[in-house]
Design a protein around this nucleic acid. Structure first.
Length: 111
DNA sequence: GCCAGGGCGCTAA
DNA sequence: ATTAGCGCCCTGG
């Protein structure tokens, strides 16, 4: 696994439950600004049972970039986390999109 | 080791 | 829908 892939995995692992991030954002957060495609590639290479919330990564328009069974599985996992799809099968990124901030669930009281 | 070519679960016109 | 641009990585010389 290349360093970039490791960073990508690390970022994906931080996406909160019930939120989604675009390939481009993940790339950006991984320190590789225009490498959305590498994110897609990295996820594709992952083993099917990888302990990573890969399903929380969608394309810039809030659509699932996968096809066939992969898309079905991804949609299923997202729905189970409470993410809603509109009539066109897209996710409203303004509402469900993760901004990349430390969004700690339950906000740790004081620090 | 370096270089060229091609592919990609992308993104923006 | 299509097209062009993109950065990284794999492959083969």
């Amino acid at each position: 696994m290349t360093p970039l892939q490791q960073r990508i995995v690390a970022v994906v692992a931080r996406i909160p439950r019930g939120r989604v991030a675009s390939y481009g954002l993940v790339a950006w957060l991984a320190g590789a600004p225009r490498c959305a495609r590498q994110v897609g590639r990295a996820l594709r290479e992952l083993p099917e049972d990888a302990p990573l919330p890969w399903h929380r990564v969608v394309n810039a328009r809030g659509e699932l970039s996968l096809s066939g069974d992969g898309a079905t599985e991804q949609r299923r996992r997202l729905l189970r986390e409470g993410v809603r799809f509109d009539a066109r099968g897209r996710i409203d990124l303004v509402r469900w999109g993760w901004d990349g901030r430390a969004s700690r669930k339950r906000t740790r009281a004081r620090a």
